[in-house]
């Protein structure tokens, strides 16, 4: 078993398992976020539920571990990949043989990671450890997360526009990342063949579009309405 995690397929196994875990997380996160379209009360209740639910609380360190695993192994794998071609080609043309996203997963990943850092500082850290306005919804006192979100997208003038743009671009990057990642994770786990490859690719694309579009709706909602 020990040799498994040092083997190329073992390392990729960890990438794909952690990746699929993050895929599930994204779905939960998006669902919670979309309550924002239901107005401040709906969103605050959803955020409050997420913040206080014991299962979610329990999952937080596991999620962090999942992120770390995915990031660390992506770097280990990528560095080996870079090293495995010591002399580069002068001319390479892969425009028709593979997708741009599949060739640039590391860069898309790094971009998303950059966003994630900003995102954690802006939201997670503030909600967990910062000063939050309190609000009472249906007799329950809770943090006014809606105000925090709305504030970031609307209260700082030009900076809010830039922030919104970065937010949208990041989720497009995440969508591209998922476009390749979804099927790829199943392939690495050996759960693909000629027929399922097409199905999983389509499913992956649908999922990628839902995630990218779903999260993009939030800044657009604040900017346009």
């Amino acid at each position: 078993m020990s040799s498994f995690f040092t083997s190329s397929i073992g390392k990729k196994f960890l990438m794909s398992v952690s990746g699929l875990f993050l895929v599930v997380f994204l779905a939960v996160h998006l669902t919670a976020n979309l309550f924002i379209l239901g107005g401040p009360d709906a969103f605050n209740q959803s955020a409050h539920f997420m913040g206080t639910n014991p299962i979610i609380t329990l999952m937080q360190p596991i999620l962090a571990f999942g992120f770390l695993l995915h990031i660390i192994y992506s770097l280990i794998i990528q560095i080996k990949n870079w090293k495995s071609r010591p002399v580069k080609y002068k001319k390479v043309d892969q425009s028709e043989t593979s997708t741009w996203a599949s060739r640039n997963m590391i860069w898309l990943g790094i971009f998303v990671f950059g966003f994630l850092t900003v995102h954690i500082i802006n939201f997670f850290y503030v909600i967990k450890f910062g000063e939050m306005n309190m609000i009472t919804v249906n007799g329950v006192e809770m943090e006014d997360s809606y105000k925090l979100v709305a504030g970031l997208f609307t209260d700082f003038g030009a900076i809010s526009y830039i922030y919104s743009a970065v937010y949208i671009i990041s989720f497009i990057a995440l969508g591209l990342h998922l476009h390749h990642a979804f099927w790829s994770a199943f392939q690495t786990l050996g759960l693909s063949n000629i027929a399922w490859r097409k199905r999983l690719s389509v499913l992956g694309d649908i999922y990628a579009i839902i995630v990218a579009a779903g999260f993009t709706i939030i800044p657009l909602y604040f900017l346009l309405f």
């Binding site: 083997s7 190329s8 990729k12 090293k83 043989t97 997963m105 690495t188």
Partner: peptide
């Protein structure tokens, strides 16, 4: 796979 890993080949990233 063990021998493949030893010989300096990179990891598959399923680009196709």
């Amino acid at each position: 796979v063990a021998v493949m890993d030893e010989l300096g080949f990179g990891n598959c990233s399923n680009t196709g």
